[in-house]
Amino acid sequence: MNNIFNIGRFGLLLKRQWVEFGKIYLISLFVVAGLLVAFYAFNIPSNENLPMFDNGRLRLQFRLPLFIILGFLFISIVSSGYYAVLGQKARSIIELMTPASTFEKFLAGVLFTGVLTIFCFILIFSVTDIMFMNYMEKTLTFPHFNDPVMGTFKSASIVSFYTEISKDNVFPYFYAVPFLVTSVFLLGSIYFNTFHYIKTAISVMVFISVLSYFTYKVGSWIHELYPVTGGGYHASKNNALTYILIGSILITLIFWITTYFRLKEKEA
C-alpha cells in the first residue's frame, strides 16, 4: 500500500471532504450568485440613462471592483474555513485519524480552496455577466450612426467582462494573485485555532505594513548612501509586473509548503 499518494484513496478523501464541506460550499456559492445578480440588476443602465462610452463599448464600471472585492471575500472566506476544524481538538482527532496520508489531506485542501473555489467563482461570475450582457443586448437600444467611410454602426457594443479585461495587457500578470489569497487564508485556517479569518487578515495587514515600512526605510537608506544623480534607473512597467507575477507565485508556493508542514505537525 502506498502510504504517500494513492489516487483511489485521494478520490475517497475528496468525496469525504465534499460531504462535510460541500453544503457550506454550495451555500456560499449561492450567496455569491445572489449578490452578483443583485449588483448587476441594480447597475443595469436604462435607455434614458446610457452611461458613457469607452472605446466604442458600453461602460460598466462596477464590474471590476465587484469582481475583485466579491472574489476576494469568497475565496478568502472559503479558504479560511477549510482546516478550521483542526483547531478544535475534539473534532481534529476524527480528521487526523482518517486513513489518508498527510500529503493527500493537504492536496485536498489545495484542490478545494485554490482550484475549485477560484474556478467556481469565475464560472459564476462569467455566467451572470454573459446572461446580463445578452439581456442588455436585447433590451437596450443604441443609436445608429451613418458614417460615410465605415458604413452604419452602432454607437456602442457590449462585451463581456473577461473579453474587456483580457484586452488589458496588465491582467495576465495578476493570474497568481487569487491563488496567493487562497494559500494565505488556507495557511491561516490551520495556523490559528480560532477566529481564523480575522487573525489571518490582521496578520497579512501587519506583515504588509511592516514590509512596506522596511522597504521604504531601506530604500531611503540606499538612496542616502548612493545618491542618485541624473535620471537614475527606472524599472520598466513590464519589469515590475513580471516581479509581481513571479513573486506571487513564489509566495503562494511557500504558503502551500508551510501549510503542508503545519498539517504534518498538527497535534490533537
Binding site: M1, R91, I93
Partner: peptide, 22 residues
C-alpha cells in the same frame, strides 16, 4: 508518520466527540 496503512487499522474513540452535521 500517520500513514494510511496504520490509520486504517486503528479505531480511536476520543472522550469528547464532535461529528459533522450529516
Amino acid at each position: 508518520k500517520r500513514q494510511p496503512g496504520l490509520l486504517a487499522q486503528i479505531c480511536f474513540i476520543p472522550e469528547e466527540l464532535y461529528l459533522p452535521s450529516v
